[in-house]
């Protein structure tokens, strides 16, 4: 499983760190650290984090979930 966070989009909302604390961690109030290749036991946590990210900054590959392939944050504004 591969996880990529678009750190330009990321707003430090920490939703990911709440739902997958073994994969995402907040460093201080804003900066995000994460494991780009978590093992399979974290699959559901990672899928929850991806869905919960308010700005859709997280992309997950190889988690066997059809819906994750279709476009993280494609809309930036009006």
């Amino acid at each position: 499983m591969r996880v990529v966070v678009d750190l330009n989009r990321c707003q430090g909302y920490a939703q990911c760190a709440f739902l997958a604390p073994d994969v995402f961690a907040m460093h201080g109030e804003e900066a995000l650290l994460y494991d780009g290749e978590p093992d399979g036991t974290r699959r559901l946590d990672v899928l929850r984090a991806e869905a919960a990210c308010p700005v859709k900054a997280i992309t997950v590959e190889g988690a066997g979930a059809a819906w994750t392939a279709a476009g993280a944050g494609v809309s930036n504004g009006p």
């Binding site: 939703q15 739902l19 929850r48 869905a51 919960a52 308010p54 859709k56 819906w67």
Partner: peptide
């Protein structure tokens, strides 16, 4: 159910965005 890029306002947005959202998501799921 699998709508892409779903940046809804269910939990608000901005400085008052819901702090309970991770808990509410786990409960509802």
């Amino acid at each position: 159910p699998d709508r892409p890029d779903n940046q809804h306002f269910g939990f608000g947005s901005g400085i008052h965005n819901c702090i309970g959202s991770p808990l509410a998501r786990l409960e509802a799921q």
